[in-house]
């Protein structure tokens, strides 16, 4: 492994956040609300349990063979042949998963920003950005995610704007959906939490392994807070009946706000989100 490709544990926080938060956040409240209704926010909170478990398992695994590398680890665990097959399967999974993300993001862009451009061209453009970033290696991916982290942070504040139309009774009665529905909602939300598995690869690139667990928890917590806030705001603004109909509630609710210079903040948000959605590690 190239010595130039090590990252710091601080950067790992940003990478995990960058891997998890992508295009899913816009539709997350809608998808979860279908299952868990006004308790969608509880479901999102519960859904965070799964990635936390995954994080702990990966960390334990990595600690046993800190220098192995992802491929080496699989070879150690499963032997040469089976290990290679599993590495291949993992790669296929990542490609498939990120393919879905790119596709979703391109469709969203297509609908909101470029209605006349054919979808393949939009997809191609998104891929150009993604490939360019990844081509530069792990370090640069980490640095870019670091910048994007602050952009996500700033955009989150934008998402708080619709709160002027909030109605807290939309949250009531809390817990009415029942444990079964909330659990099902949590399972739906865990799709949005996916991305933490890239730690399997990035664990071995971190310089100080003992800080991985702290960084992982920090990153995951941030994602959880982001999802929780977005879901809460969406429920507060739309109410769960509307939420179940609107495809991208987080984007659409920005339509309700009017700023002095920005007539349609949702365009702005989506345009800036190109970086966020477009950079999977």
């Amino acid at each position: 492994m190239n010595a130039n490709d090590t990252i710091t544990s601080k950067q790992l926080v940003f990478i995990i956040v960058g891997a998890q938060i992508a295009v899913g956040v816009f539709s997350l409240p809608h998808l979860v609300a279908i299952e868990a209704r006004q308790d969608a926010w509880l479901a999102v909170l519960l859904g965070a349990a799964l990635p936390f478990a995954v994080l702990l398992i990966i960390e334990r695994l990595g600690r046993r063979m800190p220098e192995a590398g992802f491929v080496g680890m699989n070879h150690l665990l499963f032997g040469r042949w089976l290990g290679s097959v599993i590495v291949f399967l993992f790669a296929a999974y990542v490609v498939l998963f990120q393919g879905i993300v790119v596709r979703l993001f391109s469709e969203l862009t297509s609908i909101f920003l470029l209605p006349c451009t054919p979808l393949p061209i939009t997809i191609f453009l998104v891929l150009v950005g993604v490939v360019y970033v990844i081509n530069k290696g792990a370090r640069v991916v980490a640095r870019v995610n670091e910048i994007l982290f602050w952009i996500i942070f700033a955009l989150l504040l934008l998402l708080l704007l619709p709160l002027v139309n909030a109605d807290y009774t939309n949250l009531l009665p809390a817990g009415e959906a029942g444990l079964a529905c909330i659990t099902r909602g949590a399972l739906v939300s865990s799709f949005s939490y996916a991305g933490v598995e890239i730690l399997l690869v990035f664990y071995f690139l971190v310089g100080r392994k003992e800080e991985v667990i702290k960084a992982g928890i920090l990153g995951l917590s941030f994602t959880t807070v982001v999802y929780l806030v977005v879901t809460l705001v969406c429920i507060l603004v739309w109410g769960h009946e509307l939420l179940q109909i609107i495809n991208w509630p987080a984007l659409s609710m920005l339509k309700t706000v009017k700023l002095a210079v920005l007539e349609r903040p949702e365009f702005f948000l989506l345009a800036v989100w190109v970086g966020v959605g477009g950079v999977p590690p």
Partner: peptide
Amino acid sequence: FGLFGFSLGWL
């Protein structure tokens, strides 16, 4: 590509 292209350029 409009604002999308703009963001891509900055990215």
